[in-house]
């Protein structure tokens, strides 16, 4: 069955400043995600955020933080709703401080730079739908978060 899923994929791989790798990893391990902000918007199925360090692989930054999610609808349109949540905004403000890109600090605070933040995330999204990237599978291509939670 070839149905284009209603869900969308985001696989953003951000280069991280070496000095921030341990701090960010500790933060991600010790501070649980406060899901209420994501629940309130109601379009995110799953989100994973983690740091990893490819072992001197040519062409790949040596320190990476990955943000991987599956979500419904328009990323650009709903971005303001996400960063309007104080916990979500605070997380990404500190996250951006760790990103090794001189543009990152210009979009802090994300709550007042939502459009630029969306563009920044999409720049590092290796599964950005505007470019060919590969395959993914959905077991329920027609179901949104809302359809699942409130059948």
């Amino acid at each position: 069955m070839s149905v284009t899923p209603v869900q969308n994929a985001l696989t953003a791989l951000f280069p991280i400043k070496a000095a921030f790798v341990d701090v960010l990893r500790e933060k991600l391990i010790k501070e649980p995600i406060n899901g209420s902000g994501l629940d309130a918007v109601g379009t995110v199925h799953f989100a994973r955020i983690f740091v990893f360090q490819p072992n001197n692989t040519p062409g790949i930054p040596s320190n990476i933080a990955a943000v991987i999610t599956t979500y419904d609808g328009s990323f650009g349109a709903y971005i303001q709703d996400f960063v309007d949540n104080e916990d979500v905004a605070a997380f990404f403000d500190s996250f951006l401080a760790a990103v090794d890109d001189k543009e990152a600090e210009k979009i802090i605070p994300v709550a007042q730079n939502s459009k630029a933040f969306a563009a920044f995330v999409q720049k590092y999204d290796v599964t950005n739908p505007t470019k060919p990237w590969g395959q993914w599978y959905s077991a329920y291509p027609a179901l949104t978060v809302q359809n699942i939670l409130h059948p």
Binding site: G37, A40, G42, Q80, N85, E86, Q146
Partner: peptide, 12 residues
Amino acid sequence: GPLVVPVGNKIA
């Protein structure tokens, strides 16, 4: 309704 709830202290 879904997807349109107030976010934090903000009414979107």
